[in-house]
Design a protein around this nucleic acid. Structure first.
Lengths: 207, 207
DNA sequence: GAAATAAGAAACCCTTGGTTCCTTAATCCC
DNA sequence: GGGATTAAGGAACCAAGGGTTTCTTATTTC
């Protein structure tokens, strides 16, 4: 029988890990299970990754890069498109994977940092910065610079929902964060004469 | 030798669990360890709690209730006081405890709900609602009702920092969230003629 | 074709969650 | 007070999983 090696084998393992994760969830995924699924042995996995979280981190690594900067001409549309991109990236990832990784990497600063770079806002917030600059040039909002906290605001809110409450953000959530919080804070007046947020209570409720 | 029973024993176990958690962290705390520390046996613990997360949940339960509504006469001071209360509650809790619990309770809806009720905003957001109403009556901000998302905004942001980034919010963070995001969103003009946030970039940075 | 490399299979160790069983102390109730 | 009931505490046990080691053998490399 044939034996895979190098990159071919590695890809097969990563695929197996993704499969296991999708099927069993983070908590029930095991090295044994992944090895078996990939048709190889634990020793081979440990030769490449020093621990389970490390392997899982590589599993996700491909997903959260390349954030395109939207440029529709309208701030609201740009923001929504950017958030939808984040939403889609997250969509591939089960919630328990994120919280599991957070929990398992707290004690290892190197891993924790890698995870943060993945989940967190680096690429997204750069894109958001640009979106705000473009809007300021068009005169839709006052000129910057905006505090970092303002730039990452919508992402933080959605991530909080996702991680703490287990809510995968719907389109309505994206719109609510944008219209009720982000745009009003930026001082954006919608071209369509949008109603001020606080005069119309949020239409979607949960719990 | 004497044998403890009932509430006395239970308190001793909860104390032992808190000790173990504080000393070893969530990931390294074990039933065996807690039982030993409390001078009893695992069987006794399992007679009371069906699992480790359940026990830990009870360990924290006492901390996150009774949120006093501040009423200093100024919105900014009220908000800061409320956030400081949240900060203090969190301060007793290591970050890995929260993320560990989140990860361990995803698959059990009942536990997940209990955790959410603890960490999340129920009591805090009620208090925040009242604070905003008081400010509106004083004419410091426009009248409500505000969307739920606006009310919980500062808490969500700080919680995101805490859970995802492992940052225990400092007083500066509290102030930044309040002055850069929350108050501007509410349309609050500081009595002291506060500078608009976006004209002075955030003074504290991290990473 | 020989030497170096690494795959795959298996056994193994250790820790932990969770269970069971038994002995014996504390409490209850007549 | 004394017997019946309850539950504490101790120990052994099981299964599962992380992580390591060892060995055989297929693949590369030179």
């Amino acid at each position: 029988m044939s034996r895979r090696r190098g990159a071919e084998l590695e890809d097969a393992i990563l695929d197996a890990a993704r499969e296991e994760l999708a099927e069993l969830g983070y908590a029930k995924s095991t090295m044994r299970g992944i090895a078996k699924r990939a048709g190889t042995s634990k020793a081979v996995l440990y030769r490449r990754w020093s621990s389970l979280p490390e392997l899982f981190l590589d599993t996700l690594a491909s997903r959260f890069t390349n954030v395109p900067v939207p440029d529709t001409g309208d701030l609201r549309d740009d923001v929504l498109e950017l958030l939808r991109h984040a939403q889609t990236s997250l969509g591939y990832t089960r919630r328990d994977t994120v919280s599991g990784l957070i929990a398992d990497t707290v004690h290892d600063p190197r891993l924790a940092q890698r995870l943060r770079d993945l989940i967190a806002d680096s690429a997204l917030s750069d894109a958001m910065s640009t979106v705000l600059e473009l809007a300021a040039e068009r005169g839709q909002i006052p000129p910057g610079p905006w505090p970092r906290r303002v730039i990452t605001l919508p992402i933080s809110l959605l991530r909080d929902d996702f991680v703490v409450f287990g809510i995968w953000p719907s389109d309505a959530d994206l719109a609510a964060v944008t219209d009720e919080v982000f745009l009003p804070l930026l001082g954006y007046a919608s071209p369509a004469g949008m109603v001020r947020n606080r005069d119309r209570p949020s239409s979607e409720h949960r719990e």
